[in-house]
Design a protein around this nucleic acid. Structure first.
Lengths: 250, 250
DNA sequence: ACTGAGCTTCCACTGAACGGAAGGCCATCA
DNA sequence: TGATGGCCTTCCGTTCAGTGGAAGCTCAGT
């Protein structure tokens, strides 16, 4: 059950994730399942190329060169580009943290995020994956996801805060409402002090291609205005997507 | 002069850049200096892990997993985060494409970019490096760069458009003006139909830490207003940076 | 049917990768 | 002060994974 050098080097890179952005050599080795001496040699090569950076303290972080490379990846590039101006507009009218997300398996993948001055506690980052059942954009994407995906997610609703919905029946009921009303909300289900509203973004073919959401400290007051701002933006994105070949964003 | 497997795999990744975002196997091999069979095997492993994606046509592109990883790289994370809300504000007041950039060697590295609805032809991308002498942010950063860097850049001023400044003396004169007036401008020097204004962003210690710029179709009319909006934003960023430990953004 | 460009597979040889072990460094604790 | 433990670095003899030329494949153009 030996592994190729390449896969070992990649395993070393794979040791980094949103919760482990800086690692000691030994941690990297442990997480990648590699002997220390091997990790040492490989990390050295990766760092020499710029895939890893070594910080003053000796810990490794993902290097600038991988950042460069990553920016070249066509991850929903068309969608992100089409959405970008509408996200700015949305930020302008709501002054709330704005999110653009798609479904990636059973998680929400954040494609873009604009964060404002007022920092409501927001855990998302561009490129991070969060559970679908505890976020606004997640609920939207879940509401329109294929049945098997929905079933899988409903199977294990992990608790994040005291307000996280962990009963499948209650979540199902909410998802029905989302489909009916066209928007989803959360109240401190992912992070205390943060509420959110989200709407679906449809592609030119009518399918839900993404979700658009905002995070605010309180939802009671302005819900109607926020929902309508979101819907205006979502329609704008759909319109832009309609004017480009579907291969660009599908 | 053989090379380690790791360095070969990395060379293969290194074949991708802003001008080569999708490559055939043979192109990758050629650019990386590897025999086809070797490129084939390595590309297969990289693709299996998700570092590369294979597109319908058979061409390779940078994969989603490298995008994920890249997002974890702490590339001026503190600066980007501090600047983010001010960039949005700036977009709100100018409705122009907004850029945040730093100097990387003798190039401008774009850290963030907000693009508006009106698409002035803009060549920059987040993560891309452009020549300093033909961009607004570049001129700002060059004006405050160490002498040896400035000398090197002045040594080869490559022409991009008919308006690109290629005479060292003229550029030097402009840089002097930039230091005096506190802002730089360009007029179609990088891309026809695009003018720009840029100002320095100073760190808490007073050193120029970055440059902030906007791109507009025409500069004659609103220059004063744009410069002042840029300066307001730049000061705001400086203020935010001052309130965090310098290790976070330096 | 022929040509050429690119992709995939095969396999015998070999030198690059391996990793245990030993040693260095620097905290922390008694 | 010396002992302990965690982490990093280097060394080196063994061996097995990586190599790449060559043959064959697919597909498009002519």
């Amino acid at each position: 059950m030996s592994a190729s050098v390449t896969s070992r080097a990649l395993a070393l890179l794979g040791a980094f994730d949103a919760d482990h952005r800086s690692l000691t050599l030994s941690d990297m080795g442990r997480r990648a399942g590699l002997p220390l001496a091997t990790a040492h040699r490989l990390a050295g090569e990766l760092a020499a190329w710029g895939a890893l950076d070594r910080q003053p303290g000796g810990e490794y972080v993902v290097g600038r060169r991988l950042w460069d490379l990553g920016m070249l990846a066509p991850v929903q590039a068309g969608l992100r580009q089409a959405a970008s101006p509408f996200l700015h507009d949305l930020y302008g009218t709501t002054l709330a943290t704005v999110h653009l997300a798609v479904r990636d398996g059973t998680k929400v993948l954040y494609l873009d995020r604009l964060s404002g001055h007022v920092s409501v506690p927001v855990v998302s980052r561009v490129g991070s994956r969060l559970p679908m059942h505890a976020t606004g954009v997640g609920k939207v994407l879940l509401a329109y996801a294929p049945d098997d995906v929905r079933a899988e997610v409903l199977g294990k609703l992990t608790r994040v805060t005291a307000y996280t919905i962990t009963q499948p029946a209650r979540l199902l009921e909410q998802l029905r409402r989302v489909r009916g009303e066209g928007f989803a909300t959360t109240g401190e289900e992912m992070s205390l002090g943060a509420c959110s509203v989200a709407v679906p973004v449809r592609g030119a073919d009518g399918d839900v291609a993404a979700a658009l959401g905002i995070v605010v400290p309180d939802l009671r007051r302005e819900r109607a205005r926020l929902v309508s701002a979101l819907q205006v933006a979502a329609h704008g994105i759909t319109r832009t997507l309609s004017s480009m070949p579907s291969t660009q964003w599908k």
